[in-house]
Design a protein around this nucleic acid. Sequence first.
DNA 1: TAGGCTAGAGAACGTACGTTCTCTAGCGCA
DNA 2: TGCGCTAGAGAACGTACGTTCTCTAGCCTA
Lengths: 178, 178
Amino acid sequence: MDRSDNSAHETRILDAAERLFYARGVQAVGMDELRTAAGVSLKRLYQSFPSKEVLVTAYLDRRDERWLSSLRTFVGDGGVLEVFTWLVQWFGSEDFRGCAFLNAFGELGDQVVRPVRRHKDRLRAYLRELAVREGASDPDLRADQLLILVDGATVTAMLGRPNAAGAALRLALPDMRG
Amino acid sequence: MDRSDNSAHETRILDAAERLFYARGVQAVGMDELRTAAGVSLKRLYQSFPSKEVLVTAYLDRRDERWLSSLRTFVGDGGVLEVFTWLVQWFGSEDFRGCAFLNAFGELGDQVVRPVRRHKDRLRAYLRELAVREGASDPDLRADQLLILVDGATVTAMLGRPNAAGAALRLALPDMRG
DNA sequence: TAGGCTAGAGAACGTACGTTCTCTAGCGCA
DNA sequence: TGCGCTAGAGAACGTACGTTCTCTAGCCTA
């Protein structure tokens, strides 16, 4: 079995891990259930990821990559308005359950602080780019504020408030109409 | 042993539960460690709270009560500025580790959704009072926005950004100086 | 065809933990 | 003094789960 097959297995494992960990939390999902969902043997699962902790980190890192690049692609040359439009779509998706990174941190604490912080740092860096692009007078403050609005809207939406993204958008762009 | 002694035990148990659950998460703390920290026997622990799930709910409900009444007391006749001043103090406290309710929800999901939602509903109701008091034209929207700012600042502060409360305050009161 | 390598299925192992049970010491009271 | 009640300490039980081990079937090669 060659390298490309191996990474195909890793992909299947990470797909299952993301679906299950995000939907139900890390500790609620056992390695055995994960093996079944991924359709690989326990042996191969442990060959690909030598412990659950390693798998959790890999899950978060890949989610960071994909989540941010989905956002970037959607926003394109746009700005803050497009960010919140993307959030509305995300919040409305069937399996939305808040921020995977905040949830993981609440559950596992220091054990995942590195990938969680990395994700939020990268998100903030992107928001700072947008702040610069829109000509903010203090891009660092603006980035902090946008991060607060994105995370605040996300956790509020998680608990079922329908209009979280809209309310946050009006704080981000107070001069908007509508 | 009479009723008042019993509730003294419950207080000791809830004190230990709050300290340990908040600091390390619910699943990371076993009933045995909790018993030791509270200084009661396992038998009494289970007499007071017949299962861990019941104890977790009681912990959250009591924290809701105390957290909100601490905020209310501090704010007094004041307004949004005082809310964020209180947040700054909270964020700076030694054992701050984000919002106990959001952390519990990330960890336990539907199992705690009732007390978590209850807490956020009560917080939003209080913020709506403040919105009315300050003469907001749309108190419901204003309450949603303040809730987003409070929660957003809390999770951002949890991950180590120093000025979260300040940045949020400037969104809440854009005309503030300083 | 024989031999050995690989991979999968799942049994097995060790540990942790929620919950219950047992044993004993002390105390109130006849 | 003897009896019974209570409470505490911690052993014990059952289960779940992370991780490793075993067994077997198939396949590649000489």
